[in-house]
Design a protein around this nucleic acid. Structure first.
Length: 312
RNA sequence: CGCAGGGUAGAGCAGCCAGGUAGCUCGUCGGGCUCAUAACCCGGAGGACGGGGGUUCAAAUCCCCCCCCUGCAA
């Protein structure tokens, strides 16, 4: 079975690796073009490209998937099935029509919930206690295609976008291998339509979403920290201009009886912040321009005093 | 040539602009106080200030080159 893989980010890597490990016939890998990235704007290949080239698989990097040249290329490759995972571009119907077995997409949520670009992040931000990864047939809509299968996983309190992404990526990869191993010949796998009435949307995060509002309950802020961990991070401002990213924290039920955003140092080493409801204990902090550090070191190095506050 | 901050005791920071015996908080070691302590008091160890050159009577501080770290941006 001729498989064309399309993916870009870290989430797609386990899927590609599993396909390689199980010796599926990969006729090519499509990924986003190398982008200027990182300090100094060096041209950087996507994580998926790194894996593909390491296994000497042909790589295609169209600027636009709907580009006629690229569509012709896909036709020429004549894939039986296209597998998509975190590719980052909308595929035009002209491409979806090509593979006789359909285009299979790996989506890290329990569809129809959390359709869109940032399902893992929003599930965490919303404080969900369960999520999953869904295998579906891509259609013209955004994550609206028929569902092939889904795996559920509980979200633990210590989960962040990092841990969940890693976990769901691996689960999804296994699920994909299972599906491809049982594929019918010459036609798409069995799938059932989504219930659109239950659909919710998980749009791409923006930098502004990471800005902490201390007038929110401690639990909500803690969830924001977990959900934005990969990017943009949950941040606030200290002593007027210093941007601080909260890397790790914990929400406590106790009330500080201070204005939200006010700091309190407890037992010489605990960094507490008053919120609208409950208290947030900061465990790990990263001031802009510094490496992330323990709250304890932050208190010592910056000579923190109870009563100081965060601007927001 | 994208913008910007930084590398000073085990950790986090100050000192650098206006060169002249290296400082703060924490940790650590020893002693004391205490029923006891992560609390408090006293004392000690630990740093050729990222690397290399230069200027100077004198460089953590001024000049040049290199290495490394980080935030933003993408």
């Amino acid at each position: 079975m001729r498989i064309l893989f399309m993916g870009t980010s870290e989430f797609a890597v386990p899927a590609l690796k599993e396909l390689i490990a199980h010796k599926f016939e990969l006729i090519g890998v499509v990924t986003q073009p190398d982008r200027p990235s990182g300090r100094g704007k060096r041209l950087t290949p996507s994580p998926v490209k790194g894996v593909a080239t390491a296994h000497t698989i042909q790589v295609y990097q169209p600027e636009k998937a709907r580009n006629p040249d690229f569509v012709r290329t896909v036709k020429r490759l004549a894939p039986d099935v296209i597998v998509v995972a975190a590719f980052g571009q909308i595929l035009p119907q002209t491409i979806l029509d090509i593979p006789p077995c359909g285009t299979i997409n790996l989506h890290p949520s329990l569809l129809p919930r959390y359709r869109g670009a940032a399902p893992i992040q929003w599930a965490l931000i919303n404080g969900e206690t369960e999520t999953g990864v869904t295998l579906m047939l891509l259609d013209a809509g955004e994550d609206t295609g028929d569902i092939i299968s889904a795996d559920r996983v509980p979200i633990r309190d210590e989960d962040t976008a990092f841990t969940l992404t890693r976990q769901l990526a691996q689960l999804g990869a296994n699920q994909l291998v299972r599906c491809l191993s049982n594929m019918p010949i010459g036609e798409p796998p069995f799938a059932v339509p989504q219930n659109d009435a239950e659909a919710t949307h998980a749009p791409r995060l923006t930098k502004e979403i990471g800005r902490i509002d201390w007038n929110q309950p401690a639990i909500a802020i803690h969830n924001l920290v977990r959900g934005t961990a990969i990017w943009p991070g949950a941040y606030t401002f200290f002593r007027e201009k210093l941007r601080l990213k909260i890397v790790r924290c914990q929400s406590l039920p106790q009330e500080l009886d201070r204005r939200p955003g006010t700091l309190e140092i407890a037992e010489r080493q605990k960094l507490l912040v008053a919120t609208a409801e409950g208290t947030l204990q900061l465990l790990e902090i990263q001031p802009a321009t510094k490496k992330s550090m323990e709250a304890h070191d932050f208190i010592n190095g910056y000579q923190l005093q109870t009563g100081e506050f965060f601007n927001y």
